[in-house]
């Protein structure tokens, strides 16, 4: 048990992706860019080597296929407004229009938008991860009447398209006087069923014997959640954090409906409003803004993906 009880990371740091690596876990390899220790046979066997090269070639082609639309977007952000869409499609701008970036920075409130979005994304992610993983324990490990029905209800709500109940929800929140405040978005996004479902599924992979042993040691259910389940579900917490963060960051319709005051706008809403006019949108300008807005997500992702490390969750078994 000692192996896991040492890993009590503070929940708060867990909620943020940039959390420290949990201490005390064995077998945790370095940053994942590091290929890790190689055996000597790996280096010398020529067949393996060719296999590796083929793998990298395939991966690189694959990555190009994945990044092409993004590349087109970045290149288009350097074009003039009427040049973006053309037949045949053009990749390189006629003249490089850096002005789009200057305009976005100088003429729009992009810093305010980024600040609002960052605030929302962090708070929503924190609440979603906290309440979601907490509730998930109730669904995964406690047995009581109506549990499965309640859980099905949770999943069921995911199945209802938001647009169809958006108006009743808007009336409700307007009556609570929270529309046109950042609270509206926090309330809207933080208590979704997604996090509960994800964490519950993950908890079910953690051997029951661990909790049993902990109960024998005198831990309460709450302590088991905090000291055993949370540290052991870091990969799941990481993916929940990443996905919640990205979804909040990129949400457009929610902020559109609720945030009417330009001081409260998020990056997606601000960008679209800034570049849209009556009958059309200046896509070159929009793409410049979107390029800027992707950067924070990419950084968060690069930081977060290293928590998908093999052996993390199971190492507790032998502890």
């Amino acid at each position: 048990m000692s192996g896991t009880t040492q890993t009590q990371s503070d929940l708060q740091t867990l909620a943020l992706v940039a959390a420290e690596k949990p201490r005390g876990l064995r077998k945790l390899s370095g940053p994942s860019g590091d290929p890790g220790p190689k055996t000597s046979t790996e280096k010398t066997d020529p067949r393996r080597r060719i296999g590796r090269i083929a793998l990298y070639a395939a991966l690189t082609i694959f990555a190009i296929g994945l990044l092409t639309p993004f590349a087109w977007m970045v290149l288009s952000s350097l074009k003039s407004a009427n040049e973006v869409f053309a037949v045949p499609i053009r990749w390189l701008p006629e003249a490089w229009v850096w002005q789009n970036y200057v305009d976005i920075w100088a003429k729009s409130d992009i810093l305010t938008w980024i600040r609002n979005t960052l605030f929302l994304a962090v708070v929503v992610t924190f609440l979603q991860v906290l309440t979601g993983s907490f509730a998930a324990y109730g669904f995964a490990r406690m047995r009581f009447r109506g549990r499965d029905a309640l859980f099905l209800l949770y999943i069921g709500t995911i199945a209802v398209p938001w647009q169809s109940y958006m108006i009743p929800q808007f009336i409700l929140l307007s009556n609570f006087k929270v529309s046109n405040t950042l609270w509206a978005i926090i309330l809207l996004q933080a208590f979704g069923a997604f996090g509960v479902f994800l964490m519950k599924q993950f908890y079910e992979t953690i051997p029951e014997e661990l909790s049993e042993a902990a109960r024998l040691d005198g831990l309460s259910e709450y302590a088991i959640w905090r000291k055993i389940m949370l540290p052991l579900s870091i990969p799941a917490l990481a993916s929940l954090t990443l996905l919640t963060f990205v979804n909040t960051w990129n949400d457009y319709l929610g902020p559109l409906i609720y945030l009417r005051n330009p001081d409260l706008w998020t990056i997606q809403l601000g960008l679209k409003s800034f570049v849209s006019n009556l009958y059309d949108t200046n896509y070159a300008l929009l793409f410049a803004g979107l390029t800027i807005s992707v950067i924070p997500i990419a950084i968060i992702f690069l930081l977060g993906q290293k928590y998908f490390v093999e052996g993390l969750a199971t190492s507790g078994l032998k502890g």
Partner: peptide, 20 residues
């Protein structure tokens, strides 16, 4: 105990999603 785990999430979920 089960409900005490679920409740914090359910308060927000019930009021803001379930009701609409």
């Amino acid at each position: 105990i089960g409900w005490s785990f679920i409740l914090p999430n359910f308060l927000g979920f019930g009021l803001l999603t379930l009701v609409p």
